[in-house]
């Protein structure tokens, strides 16, 4: 390679006007063993450029995490919907159950009357036991009447 051409290229190079091809030419020239004495100082620069391009990225790329997180988000939304629908369904079933259940029908009016009386008696009995426990409150009423006449 002609020395004056290289010198011209070096000149152009520092002005930022060389093309990629010309820069490659310079790199090959400076990687050769016979570099002119006065250009020797540029050798490490071009040497470094060629060497720096060799470095590689070795770690793996954790791609899964990104996608998985997205999927997980959708999964949790779906799960929430399923849970809410489930709760709603059971609540609906529970409230509507008594209406649908067959409670039995008594056709004979006399038996029906007796059964009703029995049922009402049962209720009043329970209500009375409830009221009994409140009866002692009447004592307050009496004492109050004694004081405030």
């Amino acid at each position: 390679m002609a020395l004056d051409r290289i010198e011209k290229l070096v000149e152009k190079y520092f002005e930022g006007e060389t093309s990629i091809a010309e820069e490659k030419e310079l790199k090959t020239y400076f990687s050769s063993t016979d570099v002119a004495q006065h250009l020797e100082q540029y050798k490490p620069v071009f040497g470094y450029f060629s060497q720096a391009k060799q470095e590689q990225f070795t770690p793996s790329i954790p791609l899964k995490s990104g996608k998985k997180q997205k999927r997980l988000a959708w999964l949790s939304v779906a799960a929430a919907v399923v849970v809410m629908v489930g709760i709603g369904f059971f609540a609906y079933q529970n409230t509507s159950d008594p209406n649908q259940e067959n409670l039995g029908v008594i056709d004979d009016p006399e038996i029906a009357f007796r059964e009703t009386q029995k049922a009402l008696a049962l209720i009043s009995k329970h209500v009375n036991t409830g009221i009994e426990s409140v009866n002692y409150l009447g004592e307050y009423q009496q004492s109050k009447n004694k004081i405030f006449k």
Binding site: K43, P44, V45, G47, Y48, Q51, A52
Partner: peptide, 9 residues
């Protein structure tokens, strides 16, 4: 080489 390259770096 390493030495001068390091310098360039």
């Amino acid at each position: 080489d390493n030495d001068t390259w390091k310098w360039v770096e």
